[in-house]
């Protein structure tokens, strides 16, 4: 045997031995810890209410559409401001100009047919408005309802289309869904509540781990790892259903409800504890 080939064989053997030791060490470490799921929940009253509405100006002539839009916007804002509700703000979220379809044209499109009729159509100038009421947590239910009713009434009286309309009308019609939520209740102090929830999740995890250690007659060591979220499950297929009502969600949408009730901030942590060997350390 040549000295080069002997050296190569020795090196290969060393690598294999090292790898085997590493695997054995890792397996020994995994087996020496306890991993548990800790859940922390904090319930809180929503602090703001958001209502969305749409101001619309639609006409055959562009000039008319703009006049209508201006008139409707002015009357809507005046009506809301006239309520003099403390903490209520109105925010326009951008004007859009569209070619409005007639109902017959919409029907034709639903049928997969070309839209017939006057190609000139109508022009629509519209702007979504966001009405935000803060300080909800300090109101009792009756007071809040009364305030909301006032806003909705004033909006309807002044011609605002309150509530967000689904972008796909066909979807709504086919499912008989003619109800749209008017108000969304939201939390604002999410970070603070999350911090509380984390503390609760860790406490919950420690409690579970201690119990497991006691049953197993081992001594629980310090936390060696934390991961947020549930444990991954095998063979789980994720099916996403198309829902046109579901709009793109941001972080704050996770802590939103369409019902007036406490909103839960929930944190799930996967926590690893080590096991301390008897007489060890």
């Amino acid at each position: 045997m040549k000295p080069e080939s002997r050296l190569r064989r020795t090196l290969l053997l060393s690598v294999l031995l090292s790898a085997t030791w590493l695997v054995a060490t890792t397996q020994a470490e995994e087996k020496s810890g306890i991993t548990v799921m800790g859940v922390g929940k904090v319930d809180a009253k929503p602090s703001i209410v958001e209502l969305t509405g749409t101001i619309n100006g639609e006409a055959e002539l562009a000039g008319d559409a703009v006049t209508k839009f201006r008139g409707n916007r002015q009357s809507a804002i005046e009506a809301i401001e006239a309520l003099e509700i403390v903490g209520l703000t109105i925010e326009g979220t951008g004007v859009s100009v569209n070619s409005a379809m007639t109902q017959q044209q919409m029907q034709a499109i639903m049928q997969g047919m070309p839209a017939q009729g006057d190609s000139a159509g109508k022009l629509a100038v519209s702007e979504p408005l966001k009405l935000t009421l803060v300080g909800v947590e300090d109101m009792d239910t009756e007071q809040l309802l009364e305030t909301l009713v006032k806003i909705v009434d004033a909006g309807k009286d002044s011609g605002i289309v309150i509530g967000s309309m689904p972008t796909n009308m066909n979807y709504g019609y086919r499912r008989g869904n003619t109800r749209t939520p008017l108000a969304k209740f939201k939390l604002t102090n999410v970070d603070e509540l999350k911090a509380q929830a984390y503390e609760k999740a860790i406490a919950d995890a420690r409690k579970q781990a201690e119990r497991l250690a006691e049953i197993s007659e081992v001594k629980l060591g310090p936390i060696t790892g934390i991961r947020e979220g549930n444990l991954p499950k095998n063979n789980q297929q994720q099916v996403v259903y198309y829902n046109p009502y579901m709009q793109q969600q941001d972080d704050s949408d996770q802590f939103t409800s369409t019902d007036l009730r406490d909103i839960t901030v929930s944190i799930t942590l996967q926590v690893d504890f080590s096991i301390v060997e008897d007489g060890g350390e």
Binding site: G57, L61, G63, D64, T67, K68, G71, N72, S158, G159
Partner: peptide, 18 residues
């Protein structure tokens, strides 16, 4: 909605959604 048109100029003077 109600629309008010000027009789002379046929211009839309104001409108209000109802």
């Amino acid at each position: 909605e109600i629309m008010a048109f000027d009789q002379e100029t046929q211009k839309l003077q104001w409108s209000r959604r109802l």
